[in-house]
């Protein structure tokens, strides 16, 4: 197709949108809702994953030993843990170190109180391994395995909190996906209606075009362009809104719940939107294209 022809058809596409502006606006609004929701969920899920990943990196489990187990047995357990799949780090904490860490944490500002123990280490049998795994989901399995090893008394790990995070993240993703699919279908349906109206309005013109010798592509192009433009507009509007919302939301959350600022950090807007903008535009224009293409197949047998 020539550039002048593309230009002409693009203009016709814009004219079409203007001709049935109400339908076009309804379609744009539905796509906007679809892309907005997609963007919102995407921003939440991507940040959640980021937070969960950070938390995962910081979560370790602690392996304790039965009383009277000798150092050789402890070393052997350490070797076996290191060899496990999914284990990224194993750190040995001797009884002395455990006691020192305990003092640092719990006798802060009251060091004299700890002095009463003097050389009598109350944690003398609390030598342990701090084990880090690559993924939270693997923690449970690794813990069970280690508990079965000779000489191990128990393994402390925080299954609850982190698992809840992961489950919530998955649930959020699934529900959002379902809502997006429904909105997607509604948007395709609305665009299809808009294009049908456009075709009906231009029926005579299309008939004349065909008699003059217009190719299928030429007759169809304005309607495809109409769909793509509706999709583009429908996607661009929520993306701009989301961009401004994102920074405000992050600032708001961190200010309002400043307790969170120690544990969580959010992704920068740039990191989110360098993926979200192309994805949102492709989604919007994809909906527009599919909506017009199926309608043209149905109504424009040229």
């Amino acid at each position: 197709m020539r550039i002048s022809t593309i230009g002409y058809n693009a203009k016709q596409g814009v004219v079409n949108i203007g001709r049935n502006i109400i339908f076009s606006l309804a379609s744009i609004a539905t796509i906007a809702a679809c892309v907005f929701l997609f963007g919102l969920v995407f921003s939440i899920v991507i940040n959640f994953n980021y937070i969960v990943k950070n938390v995962e990196e910081g979560v370790t489990m602690t392996v304790f030993f039965e009383e009277g187990v000798d150092q050789a047995a402890i070393d052997s357990v350490g070797e076996q843990i290191k060899a496990l799949n999914g284990v990224t780090d194993v750190r040995y904490v001797s009884a002395q170190e455990a006691w020192e860490e305990f003092q640092k944490e719990y006798f802060k500002g009251a060091e004299d109180a700890a002095e009463g123990f003097q050389d009598d280490n109350p944690l003398s049998n609390k030598a342990n391994y701090e084990v880090t795994v690559d993924r939270i989901e693997n923690q449970e399995e690794v813990a069970q395995y280690i508990e079965g090893l000779d000489g191990v008394s128990n393994v402390n790990h925080s299954e609850g909190a982190v698992n809840t995070l992961t489950t919530f993240n998955k649930l959020l993703g699934t529900i959002s996906l379902a809502v997006i699919i429904i909105l997607f279908a509604v948007a395709v349906f609305l665009i299809s209606n808009t294009i049908s109206v456009g075709i009906a309005v231009r029926k005579e013109e299309i008939g004349i075009m065909k008699l003059i010798g217009a190719t299928n592509g030429f007759v169809r192009a304005p309607f495809i362009i109409e769909g793509l433009l509706i999709g583009l507009l429908g996607a661009a509007i929520p993306l701009v809104i989301l961009y401004f919302m994102y920074n405000r939301a992050v600032t708001y959350i961190l200010e309002k719940f400043n307790i969170l600022s120690d544990i969580v950090s959010f992704l920068a807007a740039r990191q989110v939107f360098e993926v979200l903008i192309p994805a949102g535009l492709i989604l919007g224009m994809g909906i527009g294209f599919i909506g017009s293409a199926i309608t043209i197949r149905k109504h424009l047998k040229v």
Binding site: E204, I212, F218
Partner: peptide, 19 residues
């Protein structure tokens, strides 16, 4: 004829159609 287009555009239309 296409009622919403000028005389010129009506005639030009046949040329646009064949690119």
């Amino acid at each position: 004829l296409l009622k919403d287009r000028s005389v010129y555009e009506n005639v030009a239309f046949a040329q646009r159609v064949i690119e």
